[in-house]
């Protein structure tokens, strides 16, 4: 029985109205989710459903209005190295080389130079960028930058990796390559991962379990388990089981967007 690594209980987020004429915006309501150790959980939902807000709250960058976030049973509210985050915009430090970027978290912890360099080299190898240690971010393509961002977060050995639509800014081919790379890395390192996307293919390809979110106010509509054998690769995208699950999720999301249109 795996331990629960991340537990979100009764989370609610309300954005207060900007002035008296407007109403408060309920972004998230009754969010309860769990991610077990070494699990790859994906949250998929329509645009504006609050997925980014949720992951920012878990990462400590925003505060919840109600509810708790717990890592290994302990409440967390501030950002920290235990919850590593990867964003859509890479956010690499442009004044640092690839190696120094990857070392960053370790440097903050006070890890001595030789150890840092060694660790960085290993993670750079893991993401397939050996030889680019001394390149500057401005010399890298989007896909390469995102790999460095992932390596930077992994090198810090977080308890959980929070990924907010990390491949959203990449072209379709690069995206598939990155998905397969991430699937491979997560198998090897056994990191716990919470991943957000609006791309259903990506969700099913990567996930052990999928949380489907409703439209705003964002709640958990359904939790699905992905039962697919073997390595995750793009060849799975056209198998019957894959397509069946995709259909199911698409119907749910389609319904959500229809309901949203009616509300307007």
């Amino acid at each position: 029985m795996s331990d629960v690594k991340l537990k979100v209980s009764n989370l609610q987020k309300i954005f207060p109205a900007a002035n008296r004429r407007e109403k408060d915006v309920v972004a998230l309501k009754d969010i309860n989710l769990e991610v077990k150790e070494s699990e790859f959980v994906v949250m998929v939902g329509p645009s504006g459903c609050g997925k980014s807000t949720l992951i920012n709250i878990i990462g400590g960058l925003e505060a919840a209005t109600e509810g708790q976030v717990q890592i290994d049973g302990k409440d967390v509210t501030e950002p920290g190295a235990d919850r590593g985050m990867v964003f859509q915009g890479y956010s690499l430090f442009p004044w640092l080389t690839v190696r120094k970027n990857v070392e960053f978290g370790l440097k903050m912890k006070g890890v001595p130079k030789k150890e840092r360099e060694q660790a960085a080299r290993e993670f750079i190898k893991l993401i397939g960028l050996s030889g680019f240690e001394n390149a500057l971010p401005k010399q890298l393509s989007g896909g390469m930058k995102q790999r460095v961002a992932i390596a930077r977060t992994l090198a810090n050995h977080p308890e959980i990796l929070l990924m907010d639509e990390p491949f959203g800014a990449l072209d379709a081919q690069t995206r598939v390559v990155m998905q397969e790379l991430l699937a491979k890395i997560s198998r090897e390192t056994k990191n716990t991962i919470l991943f957000i996307t609006h791309d259903i293919d990506e969700a099913i390809l990567l996930a052990d379990r999928i949380y489907v979110m409703s439209r705003r106010p964002g709640t958990i509509r359904e939790v699905l388990t992905v039962n697919m054998e073997g390595e995750r690769s793009h060849e799975m995208l056209v198998t019957p089981e894959f397509l069946k699950m995709k259909q199911k999720i698409m119907d749910m999301l389609w319904q959500e967007s229809q309901d949203a249109a009616i509300d307007k």
């Binding site: 960058l61 950002p79 919850r83 590593g84 964003f87 430090f93 004044w95 903050m108 961002a149 977060t153």
Partner: peptide, 27 residues
């Protein structure tokens, strides 16, 4: 300065002073 860089640094474990010296100043 791009706030996302500061956020990235905090999620990598930088404390308040480190955010100034290691991110804000060079950026």
């Amino acid at each position: 300065i791009d706030k996302n860089m500061i956020n990235a640094a905090r999620t990598l474990g930088a404390n308040k002073l480190q955010v100034y010296t290691e991110v804000i100043f060079p950026a």
